[in-house]
Simulated scan of single mutants.
Amino acid sequence: MYGYRKVRCAIWRGGTSKGVMLRKEDLPPEGPARDQALLTILGSPDVRQINGIGGATPTTSKVAILSRSERADADVDYTFAQVAIDKAEVDYGPNCGNVSAAVGPYAVDTGLVPVAANGRATVRIFNTNTGRFIHSEFAVKDGAFVPDGDTVIPGVPGTGSEVVLNFLRPDGGATGQLFPTGNLVDEVRLADGRVFRVSVVDAGNLSVLVDGRDLENAWDSPWFDDGASFSLGNVLEEIRQAIGRQLNLYQPSETVTAATHALPKITVLNAPHPYQTRTGQPVDPQQVTIVARAVTMGKPHPAYPITGGTALAAAVRIPGTVGYALANPNHRHHAAVIIGHPGGMSPVEVAVSNPNGVWQVDAVKSIRTARALIEGMVFLPE
Rank of each mutant, 00 (worst) to 15 (best):
T130R: 09
T130S: 13
T130K: 07
T130C: 12
T130H: 10
G131C: 11
G131Q: 13
G131W: 09
F133E: 14
F133R: 11
I134W: 02
I134V: 10
S136E: 02
S136I: 06
S136R: 01
E137F: 10
F138Y: 02
F138C: 01
F138M: 05
F138G: 02
F138K: 05
A139V: 11
A139Q: 10
A139N: 09
A139Y: 00
A139S: 13
A139R: 12
V140D: 03
V140F: 04
V140N: 00
V140W: 04
K141C: 08
K141L: 07
K141H: 13
D142F: 01
G143I: 01
G143T: 03
G143F: 03
A144N: 10
A144R: 11
F145I: 06
F145K: 04
V146T: 06
V146Q: 04
V146Y: 02
P147W: 10
D148A: 15
D148C: 11
G149V: 13
G149Q: 09
D150M: 08
D150E: 15
D150C: 08
D150G: 07
D150V: 10
D150T: 15
T151F: 03
T151D: 05
T151Y: 07
T151Q: 08
V152C: 14
V152D: 09
I153P: 00
I153H: 00
P154Q: 02
P154K: 01
G155T: 04
G155D: 04
G155R: 01
V156I: 06
V156P: 00
P157L: 04
P157V: 06
P157I: 02
P157S: 08
G158P: 08
G158Q: 02
T159N: 13
S161V: 11
S161R: 08
S161L: 08
E162R: 12
V163F: 08
V164M: 11
V164P: 05
V164E: 12
L165V: 00
L165W: 00
L165S: 00
N166Y: 08
N166E: 14
F167S: 01
F167G: 00
L168T: 14
L168H: 06
L168D: 05
R169M: 09
R169C: 04
